[in-house]
Amino acid sequence: MVSSLSDVERVFRAGHGRAVADQRWPASGLPPGSSTDGSVWASPSRAPDPSQREDGIMTDAMRAQTITITGHGGHEIEAYLARLVDAVIGGRGSVVVIHHMPGYDAATKEIVRRFAVEGYLALCPNLYSREAPGAAPDDAAAAVRAAGGVPDERLVGDVAGAVAYLRALDDSNGKAGVIGYCSGGRQAFLAACSLPLQAAVDCYGAFVVNEAPEGLPTPVRPILHLAPSLSCPLLGLFGADDQYPSPEETAKFAAELERLGKPHEFHTYKGAGHAFFAVDRPAYRPEAAVDGWRRILDFFGKHLGS
């Protein structure tokens, strides 16, 4: 199944890549079938199978590897890239994955590969590259925490570098989105308010609206005031049992986007708390995660398709 190329370069045989639909955000500012109360469009909208190369042959071979990209301040940082090998007519949309606070770990790399399987050019920058190059993910996370965390400005610069890298690939259709989990959820919104993107997904990011607890050594501040600069539709996926962010906080978030006329869709899952997508943690909630993945792929399909 897997052909080993090198320590950092592998080819996987994965499921068939799926095309992304070329459906435009309607003039109403809301996706088809959606409403502002958190309900969503009724059915997936993926386009037909992408195996429509000019020569009529399409494989599902995937390449996933560690690369170096240029991040904030011109610094070279590590990143994990996954993409299907075969090109498609019209190119592929790009997805930047922002890892959670525990780091650039195996579970996050699996998410990157999932997006590649679904037909995207997917890239996760290692936000801890500077403090802990080459370190184990958990050691890197501890080192960065001890050093004070990732500044917002640097996060934006690193995501900008990741987007630029993906858009420059021959197989890119020029459209790029961002998704982040946990602390990365807040950072996904931050990136979408700071960079020209086509779609953004916030998975249970806290401290967008509310102040973080007193005495934090990390530079985490509310960023709701950036909402007027939101450059793209935003999908928010949250757990009803989560306190950071709480349903009250995400309701305020949605209300502000509504007031500003910013296209968005928030969904809060009953019976789920924080990190319900994390398959390697007790917080995993299969029903919420499976439905969440469906919504994410539908959302990116609408906005990142060729």
Binding site: H100, M101, R145, A146, G149, C182, S183, A206, F207, A212, P213, G215, L216, P217, T218, V220, D242, Q243, Y244, H274
Partner: peptide, 9 residues
């Protein structure tokens, strides 16, 4: 949640 709460000594 990612608490960010950290005591360092």
């Amino acid at each position: 949640m990612c608490t960010y709460l950290t005591e360092k000594i």
